[in-house]
Write a protein that binds this DNA or RNA. Structure first.
Ligand SMILES: [Mn+2]
Ligand SMILES: [Mn+2]
Ligand SMILES: [Mn+2]
Ligand SMILES: [Mn+2]
Lengths: 229, 229
DNA sequence: GACCAAATTTTGAATGTCCAAAATTAAAGC
DNA sequence: GCTTTAATTTTGGACATTCAAAATTTGGTC
């Protein structure tokens, strides 16, 4: 029995449920899962019990849910399809990076392995999608490397945007318009808790100030002198 | 309520149910519909009653089913997506014409209008798919022109293959290997009822003999002297 | 230790899709 | 006109997914 779209969406939501890093101890609360999927809490409970039956998750009543090894692999493969499709839509089909997420959300469940392999090949085995999110390999493995956000990176140093962790179209358009897309080199000049804002020096030393909530969604890494001029 | 994949498949099956040409009188028998969709007869009956409820088909118990105007338009749009996707997979993704049907069978239900428009544009508003099947317009209209098959075309005259009306991969591979794909110029030398076979002169005047059943699946039109050298 | 609020689970029910097997109808032959 | 047969519909039930509302559990708070 191959998994339905619904099952794939549940697994993906659990996989993406916050950090979920190293230690396999963290449980995703049912309420958070239900919210992520836009279903009633009771629906999530019923579904998760079924997923536990089929060995895709471990479920601790009143506590939360966690992916099993099998579930994690499946989730990673769905994510792989999602991100390859996004990149394909941007690079080959010429769609905007702000309009590919919804399309990929559907297609991720319906493209064959054959076609995904072809897409992967055509794109040159890419490692990240248009938003900088890493693309899991065909084996389900992901290269997770730590990175700062605009809230945590050092002040006064050039950094390179690596990832934008919010798929909302208006936010993505904002990022694009202000030249904060992955690959751009920028610098955090100052942060101010009181005004809840971060001041940036962007492309062409253009100054801009954004809120901390927005700043937390832009990930960066130290601008290695060797990369870019 | 946008139609489910199931509904779209039912409408498409009825649309494709044999000739279905001009006069809107023909009804598709329920048994044939059930067989086309691979479901039990009772399932088709139940479903068709629901489709009649929503005004997509007209249903005459014990007699059969026919598309309403609304149903026909919807079916044509599904077919449009199907055929554009097939052509896209062949031309852009480099898949074989024998392996795109199944993929399109899924994707036809899940690509957005936006993406289909982009595909149509990228392909230069094509009129036929890789098998020579006409692609309905965005308004649902199809250019239906009459054509012969290898069983009905004149003997001893050059004709051009326009269409292959069987999606089975082995058959398509046979056609490809024998250079009988759409665009090829060939000639029917003889037909023999007793041996149930048709003798052809193909590319490079290569002779071959195929069965009448197979011959009926290859459509041709008179080789206009102006087309091809 | 009783009590409250929030999170979670349970219950009862709906929808869409499907099947197998029984019942019915239509068509054809005699 | 009856009978046989093939096609079709009905019946009863399954499964996946969903919801709203009621019941329960949990983690604090006094
Ligand atoms: Mn999805
Ligand atoms: Mn992405
Ligand atoms: Mn289909
Ligand atoms: Mn085709």
């Amino acid at each position: 029995m191959l998994p339905s779209s619904t099952v794939e969406n549940y697994l993906k939501a659990i996989y993406l449920g916050e950090g979920y890093l190293a230690e396999g101890q963290r449980l995703m609360p049912m309420g958070q899962l239900a919210a992520a999927l836009g279903v009633a809490p009771g629906t999530a409970t019923t579904m998760v019990k079924a997923l536990a039956e089929s060995g895709l998750v471990e479920y601790e009543p009143y506590n939360g849910v966690r992916l099993s090894a099998a579930g994690e692999k499946l989730a990673a493969l769905v994510l792989r399809r999602h991100r390859l499709i996004e990149l394909f839509l941007v690079r080959v089909m010429g769609l905007g990076w702000d309009e590919v997420h919804d399309e990929a959300e559907q297609l991720e469940h319906h493209v064959s392995d054959r076609l995904i392999e072809r897409i992967d090949e055509m794109l040159g085995r890419p490692e990240v999608d248009p938003h900088g999110d890493p693309i899991p390999g065909a084996d389900g493995r992901v290269a997770r490397h730590e990175s700062d956000t605009l809230l945590t990176c050092p002040l006064g140093e050039r950094v390179t945007v690596t990832r934008v962790t919010d798929q909302e179209a208006p936010f993505l358009r904002f990022i694009e318009q202000h030249h904060l897309m992955p690959g751009e080199s920028i610098e955090v000049e100052a942060r101010d808790e009181v005004s809840d804002s971060v001041r940036l020096k962007g492309r062409g030393n253009q100054r801009m100030t954004i809120g901390m909530r927005a700043a937390s969604k832009v990930r960066v890494s130290a601008s290695d002198a060797s990369s870019r001029g």
